[in-house]
Amino acid sequence: MNSVFKEFYSLYHKDIYSFLFYMTKNRELTEDLVQEVYIRIIKSYERFEGKSTMKTWALSIARNVAIDHFRKENTLKKRLFSQVDWKDYEIRDTNPIPEDVIVQSDRVRLLYQCLDKCTIDQRMVIVYRYIQDLSIAETAQVLGWTESKVKTTQHRALKVLKKHLEMQLEKEGES
């Protein structure tokens, strides 16, 4: 087994998988994208000089793979050339809720569904900040953004989630 693969798998597989799953909400697709992440890691590991942490480096690759996927998917779906503005592009969930989420409370399940209302950028920030517990600085490093951009996107994402979760809770009759 390739030693680079083994090292990254042992340390960060859970983070990579979880990130890609929350971005796609589809296990089969996540598995495909995970393969792509490892191929890119193995190919480019020689150039890794340790200036950032291995974790943020690996997650930035996962993030690139995810965005690449959405770009291709969007182009294919629309049968026209990509003009996606990632700030405005929403991911629609048509997949079943995974067992790990089903066992959670109703509120958490609704929140999981509300993630679809976020744009790709917003969802990435939510996953890194609240599911993977990265700091603002780490999230900025993974995304290659400024910290203030992370904060702004996070603020907007929370606003979107709050609005839609409140609507869902109202619909479900929770008071």
Binding site: K6, K14, Y17, Q104, S105, V108
Partner: peptide, 17 residues
């Protein structure tokens, strides 16, 4: 809301290494 977000599980890969 943030408390709820923290409760979202880290979904695991069911495959072996």
């Amino acid at each position: 809301l943030i408390e709820l977000l923290h409760q979202l599980p880290s979904v695991d890969d069911k495959r072996s290494m």
